[in-house]
């Protein structure tokens, strides 16, 4: 059976969806990801959906589920690269994925994950090291 590969990059897991999503594939991705998060103790998950030409309610639910499940496992999820046409359709469908963080592309998504990690680390270690709390500011030049 085909599978969507999950890459490990440091503390983060990276998923690029490049095939036509059918329901069983979506469910197995959900399973594999949660297993990988707990195995690798990953702190963040980045899902690149820039190649997806539709997101219907099932795939939408999968994304929302992954975000909620990973949060329980102490990992942040960010979905990146949603196409404008897909976003418009999803809103029209009635799905706003309120619990899911988003970013324009992989770079911006990594930035979101890193800064949210810094945020929590900053809270844990009270060393006064200046944590980058600004989600937006860091890769501006």
């Amino acid at each position: 059976m085909e599978k969507i590969p999950i890459l490990k990059m440091g503390e983060f897991l990276l998923v690029t969806i490049q095939v036509d999503m059918h329901d069983r594939l979506a469910l197995s991705l959900q399973d594999d990801l949660t297993r990988m998060i707990s195995q690798t103790e990953a702190r963040g998950v980045l899902i690149d959906i820039s190649s997806l030409d539709i997101v219907d309610s099932f795939i939408g639910r999968m994304l929302a589920n992954i975000a909620s499940m990973s949060r329980v496992l102490d990992a942040e999820t960010v979905v990146v690269g949603m196409q404008p046409a897909v976003a418009i359709t999803l809103v029209e469908l009635g799905l706003s994925l309120t619990g899911v963080r988003t970013a324009l592309h992989v770079d911006a998504g990594m930035e979101v994950l890193r800064s949210s990690l810094n945020d929590t680390n900053g809270n844990e270690t009270i060393t006064g090291k200046s944590a980058n709390r600004d989600t937006y500011g860091s890769n501006f030049d």
Partner: peptide, 17 residues
């Protein structure tokens, strides 16, 4: 248009399921 294509494909996906 691309948006209209996406809308009708998504609707078809829901109903087909």
């Amino acid at each position: 248009t691309l948006v209209d294509q996406t809308k009708v494909v998504t609707a078809a996906s829901e109903l087909a399921r």
